[in-house]
Amino acid sequence: MLERTKHKNGTQITFVLSSEHPAGDVSVVGDFNDWQPGAHPLTPRPDGHRAVTVVLPKGQQVGFRYLAHGDYWFDEDTADGHDGHNSLLHS
């Protein structure tokens, strides 16, 4: 799930997953962090989910995917689109 907050110069995106699936550590990896695994790990929230927030500059399209333990890559169903390889966001 994605939570968005529009700002004057961009969009704050919070990537949210359940605490159970997938098991283990998960990070969001994409154009905004040069595809560096572990740069944006999802951390527990009080509501029982895991999340991490990034700010994207206004007017950009970025690709991203989630990376879980065991080199398990997966997409976000609620993304703005998919290009066949990655989930896409428009800020």
Rank of each mutant, 00 (worst) to 15 (best):
R45T: 04
D31N: 09
D34R: 06
V52T: 14
Q36F: 00
L42I: 04
Q36N: 11
D47I: 06
P37R: 03
G48Y: 02
P41C: 02
T53L: 15
D31L: 10
Q60T: 15
N33S: 14
R50K: 11
V54I: 15
L42G: 02
G30M: 02
Q60K: 15
H49G: 02
G30W: 07
D47T: 03
D47N: 08
L56F: 05
T43G: 01
G38W: 08
N33F: 04
F32W: 04
P37S: 09
V55M: 11
P46T: 13
G48S: 01
T43H: 06
T53I: 07
D34T: 11
R45M: 04
H40D: 14
V55F: 09
P37L: 08
G30H: 05
A39S: 12
Q60D: 15
P57Y: 08
V52I: 12
G59D: 05
V55A: 14
V54Q: 11
F32T: 03
A51C: 04
D31Q: 11
R50C: 06
F32H: 05
P46F: 07
N33M: 12
P57V: 13
A51H: 09
G48L: 00
G30Q: 06
T43W: 10
L56Q: 10
K58Q: 12
P44N: 10
G48H: 00
G38R: 02
P41R: 04
H40A: 10
P41T: 01
H49R: 15
R45H: 00
D47G: 10
G59P: 13
K58H: 11
A51T: 05
P44D: 14
H49A: 04
P44L: 07
V55Y: 14
L56S: 04
P41K: 08
K58I: 01
P44M: 09
A51K: 13
A51S: 13
V52S: 13
H49D: 11
G38S: 00
G48N: 01
P46M: 04
N33C: 14
D31K: 13
V55T: 15
L42P: 03
V52W: 13
W35K: 03
L42F: 13
G30D: 09
D47L: 07
D34W: 03
G48M: 03
R50L: 06
Q36T: 14
G38K: 05
T53K: 15
V52D: 14
W35E: 02
G30A: 02
R45N: 07
P37K: 09
V54Y: 07
R50F: 06
V54H: 12
Q36R: 05
K58P: 03
A51L: 08
H49P: 01
Q36A: 06
D31V: 14
L42H: 08
V52M: 12
P44G: 10
W35F: 08
G59V: 10
Q36E: 11
L56P: 10
G48D: 00
P37C: 01
V54C: 08
L56M: 13
L56I: 13
